[in-house]
Write a protein that binds this DNA or RNA. Structure first.
Lengths: 117, 117
DNA sequence: AGGATACTTAAGCGCATGCTTCACCAACCG
DNA sequence: CGGTTGGTGAAGCATGCGCTTAAGTATCCT
C-alpha cells in the first residue's frame, strides 16, 4: 500500500538494464547463487555482484549467505508495485478514452469546443 | 552494455524518473502542451523538454506541433509492453510457486533433494 | 512593425552508472 | 596443511544523466 515514489524510482531504474532483467527472469525460475547468475553473462563476477546490489536495493530480489554461497531469489511484492503503477495509469487512460468516445457519440461531427471532461 | 537500445530499456529508464512519471500521469488525463506540463514543475522549460525527449524516444508519448504549440499525449501501446514484461515474470514465478507447493504437499518434511521440477 | 509567447538548441557542470582490475577473505576439499 | 572455490571491497575510468544558462527561431497578438 506504500506509495513511495523513491521505491518506484529504484525499481524502474533496476529494470532498465537488460542484464538485470535477465537476472530477474532467471530468478523467477527459482533461486540461484551469485556464480550461477554470473555464468551466462559476459562480465566479471564483480560486475554481477554490483548489479545484484542494485536489484536488492530496489527490493526486487533478496539474498542470504550460507557458508560461502549467497543464494538469491525474487521478491514478487516489489514487482507487483511496478505493475500496479502501470495498470493504474492504463485504467485512468481507458476511463478518459471511454468518456471521449461517449462525448463523440453524442456530438457527432461537431466542431471542436475543448475538453469534454 | 553497448547492445542495441532495446525498447524495454528505454521504457523502464524513462519511467525511472519521478518527474517523467508525473508527466505521464498528467498525460493520462488528456493531452497537454509543453508549457502546461512544465507549469507544476520546479525546473526550467529546457529541462522539461529534455524529459519529454526521453519519453518520446522511449515510445511512451508522442507529440505534434501546431503553430508554436507542441501538444503531447500518451502512447498506451508502449505502457502495455512494460506491463506485459512484468506480468509474464509474475506468471512464471507463480507457476513455479504452485509446483513447489504441490511438491511439498506430496513430500512432507522430506530433506531437500534439489529442484522439484 | 514591435513585443510577447512557446518552444528549440547548444554548451557545460557535477554526480551517477556500468564496467574493469587487483587485492582480499572465508569456506570447503583432498 | 595448502589449493581451489565463491564471493567481497576499493579504486579508477569512460560514458550517461539531470539540470542549468544563454542565445536562438518561429508564431501569434495588437
Amino acid at each position: 500500500m506504500l506509495h513511495q515514489p523513491a521505491q518506484l524510482d529504484l525499481m524502474f531504474q533496476a529494470l532498465a538494464d537488460p542484464t538485470r532483467r535477465l537476472m530477474v527472469e532467471r530468478l523467477c525460475d527459482g533461486p540461484a547463487s551469485v556464480s550461477e547468475l554470473a555464468a551466462p553473462l559476459a562480465m566479471t563476477l564483480s560486475a554481477v555482484v554490483q548489479h545484484l546490489a542494485v536489484l536488492e536495493e530496489s527490493g526486487l530480489i533478496r539474498s542470504q549467505k550460507q557458508g560461502r554461497v549467497r543464494t538469491c531469489h525474487v521478491e514478487t511484492q516489489a514487482l507487483r508495485a511496478a505493475e500496479r503503477w502501470i495498470s493504474e495509469r492504463r485504467m485512468v487512460w481507458e476511463r478518459r478514452f471511454d468518456r471521449l468516445g461517449a462525448y463523440l457519440a453524442e456530438n457527432p461531427e461537431e466542431p471542436d469546443e475543448g475538453n469534454p471532461t
